[in-house]
Structure formats: C-alpha cells, structure tokens
Design a protein around this nucleic acid. Structure first.
Length: 377
DNA sequence: TCCTCTAACACTTTTGAATCGC
DNA sequence: AGCGATTCAAAAGTGTTAGAGG
C-alpha cells in the first residue's frame, strides 16, 4: 500500500470546507506494478471464457486525495487499445485484420461502492473478483471482451451517495500503460504461461508437472503453445520468480511507445509495443535485470488532471442533472479521447469529465464506450 | 491445414459452516 | 451466552489438453 497523500499539492490547507479537496488532488496508484510490468514486457494475455475468468494480474489500486466524508463510487471498465484484431504467429503477435464490432460495454463497480473517501484511502482496492468473458449474452455482469483483441482497464472515481446517482456526476478517470493486455481464450505465449504459473497459487496444481493426469495426458500432438509450455516447464529450473521491483522505461518513453503501438506493425512478444525490442529468446530474468537501471517511482507518472475536479459541494452539485446547456463550459471537464493512452500532448493518464455525453462536445468519442450499460456489485 | 474456441480434467486455494474450548 | 480458534467439506479457480468447428 502506497500512501501518496504527503506528496500531493498543498492547496487550500484551510479547514475542511467545501473546496478543500479540489482539482487534481485525487491520485490513484496501481498496486502490483512490478508484476504488471513483468507481464507487460512479454505481452500480457488474459484468458477469457464463456463463464468468466478472473484477471491475473488482477487490478488493485490505491487512492488518495479524496474527501474523507464524501461518498465515492469507484468502477472500472475495459477500453479497446486500437481497432485491430491480432493473431499469434511465429512467436509474435501480428495484426489479423480489423477489430470486430465492440461487444456490449460493461462497467464493474467496486463492491464497496459507495463508500466515504476515508474508506477508499485507508487500504488498497482490489478488483480481484472482476471477471472477463467472451460471451456477449452473459447474464452475470462480467466484462465482455473479444478474444484476440487488446484492451486496458480504465478506473473511474466519482462522488455519489449511491451507485444510482453516478450517472450525472463528475468523473475522474485513470489508466495505466502497463495494464494493456490481449484477450485470449487460450494462452499463446508460453512466457506468459510460465510467469503466471510462478505467481498464481491456483496454478500450483499444474506446476508440479508430475501428476498422474498430466503424465497420462501428456501427448506430443497438443497445440503448439501447449507443447512449448510443457517443454519449458520440464526444462531445468530457470531463474526464480522475479519479485523485486520491476524496472521500466520512463513514462515519456511509455507515452511514445503507446503511440507506436497504434501502428499496425507488431513485432516481438509484446503487442503493446511499449517494451523495448529484445531478443524473444532472451530469458525473462535477464530482461528484467537489464532494465532495472531505469527504475523509477510510478507515482511520478500520475500527473494531476489539467482540468479541475469538481469539489465536494452537495448543494451546488445536485445529482440527477438533466442534460442541459446550462452547464458552465469553462468549468466542465473535457471528455477523454477514445484512446487516452495515445495522448501525445502530455503524459497524464488521468482524465476528468462528465459521463453524460450531452455535457461535452465530443459525443462521438465518449459514447463509443458507454460506462453504464451494465453494472454489477 | 490452420486457427480459435470449448469442455473436461486434476489439482490447489478459498470460503463458510460446524464444532470446540475458554 | 458470547467470542475466537480450529477443522473440514464444498465451492471456486487454475492451466492444460483434446477435439470440434469455421
């Protein structure tokens, strides 16, 4: 748990009046960044199944800068990284054509929502129970994704006394470059399999390798990816799971590479294109050690939004606002672009905006990803 | 032939009810 | 009676695999 409240701008240190917690004071930090980065280096893959599969690594965040006594709702949705469909060919991801039409966009609301800011800030928030599915008819509220497409989770915080009052509230949105993943129905990259088995306790039943069922079912005509994974697991023990702080490139490099990732040429194991190009045969451990020199504090990535977050003013900000032109445009946060991670102007992954498409000028951008077509908690 | 998806599998971890002792 | 600790079975979740289907 990383508390960052000390480092936030010391604005309005007067008593907790209405505007004490104002613009840009909300800060979100991704937990398990080391793990995320180690997966991102290879090219994170997330299994999606008909009945829903949890993410691994799972989304876990910490938040600071909230008003302790105001209620907030925190939620996450998945956003396509680009408009391509991918395929795994010859040990690397390649573009396989245009993306399929977006499935129904769903939002996972953190089960603690709504809760006061003090609750959200006292410990990290886990979205462990969020599940991903490829079943467009899913009735369980899982996040629906297309396989072989790339997505990233997007976190939203808004003041609301109940999940039902969220719709018209001001949002702050956060995303993290290292959380981009490719949705798959079966693992393609054996490095991902190995990394997951090293970190995921549920996979221990398979890592032993010598179980009766495995020895019975091990056959030479399995899928290529499966055979690769099996060979690697039976190989001599490699480097231990790398749990030290993972290195990464600077944030500006991340931003540059996120731009590059939108280009249709994808080479190397990481479909996000953010990682440095490296020999795919090089061991993961080596890759991590090589990059450790560029270690940095992730907090530095979080740049306060350029647009003010609407402060805690329950009277001034009645809920259930109807679409109207009365909104003060000068104080109305702008909507995010369709792909926030590709923003080149500044390195912030934080956005502030109103969820209602009528309240800003970029209806097309935002309405592409409705936040509340479905919620679960 | 290749690629993608699904269900079944064996195993571990988590969860929650039941029991026990203080 | 109430509380906390322990035990144990069921449920949940995992990656791998074979086979079906496009």
């Amino acid at each position: 748990m990383q508390h960052v409240s000390d480092s936030k701008p010391k604005l309005n240190m007067s008593p907790p009046a209405a505007d004490s917690y104002q613009q840009g004071s909300i800060r979100m930090t991704l937990e398990n960044t080391d793990l995320w980065k180690s997966f991102d280096k290879i090219g994170t893959e997330m299994i999606i199944t008909k009945h829903g599969r949890r993410m691994f690594p799972h989304c876990s965040i910490s938040v600071s800068g909230l008003h302790p006594f105001a209620n907030y709702v925190i939620m996450v949705d998945m956003v396509p990284v680009d408009s391509f469909k991918y395929k795994w060919k010859k040990e690397q991801w390649e573009i396989a054509g245009k993306a399929e039409p977006q499935p129904p966009c769903r939002t996972y609301v953190h089960p603690d929502s709504p809760a006061p800011g003090s609750h959200w800030m006292k410990q990290s928030l886990s979205f462990l129970k969020m599940k991903l599915t490829n079943n467009t008819l899913d009735q369980h509220g899982h996040i629906i994704l297309h396989s072989m497409h790339r997505y990233y989770p997007r976190f939203h915080i808004t003041q609301a006394d109940s999940p039902y009052t969220v719709r018209w509230g001001p949002f702050q949105t956060f995303s993290f470059p290292e959380t981009v993943f490719t949705a798959v129905t079966a693992y393609q990259n054996s490095k991902i399999t190995k990394l997951k088995i090293d970190h995921n306790p549920f996979a221990k039943g398979f890592r032993e390798g010598g179980t009766h069922s495995h020895s019975k079912r091990c056959r030479s005509n399995g899928s290529p990816a499966a055979k690769r994974a099996m060979l690697e697991r039976n190989a001599p023990p490699s480097s231990p799971p790398c749990l030290q702080r993972m290195p990464s490139t600077s944030h500006s490099e991340h931003a540059e590479k996120s731009q590059a990732s939108t280009h249709p040429s994808v080479k190397g194991g990481n479909p996000s294109g953010w990682a440095l190009e490296q020999d795919p045969t090089e061991s993961l451990h080596t890759e991590l050690l090589d990059l450790h020199e560029n270690d940095y504090s992730f907090e530095e990535q979080m740049v306060p939004a350029s647009v003010p977050y609407q402060p805690y003013r329950s009277v001034d900000y009645p809920r259930y606002l109807l679409p109207s032109n009365d909104i003060d445009v000068a104080h109305t946060p702008v909507p995010p672009p369709s792909h926030p991670l590709a923003i080149p102007e500044h390195n912030s992954q934080q956005h502030t905006y109103y969820n209602h498409p009528y309240q800003h000028n970029h209806v097309a951008d935002w309405s592409q990803y409705p936040l509340f077509s479905y919620s679960c908690w």
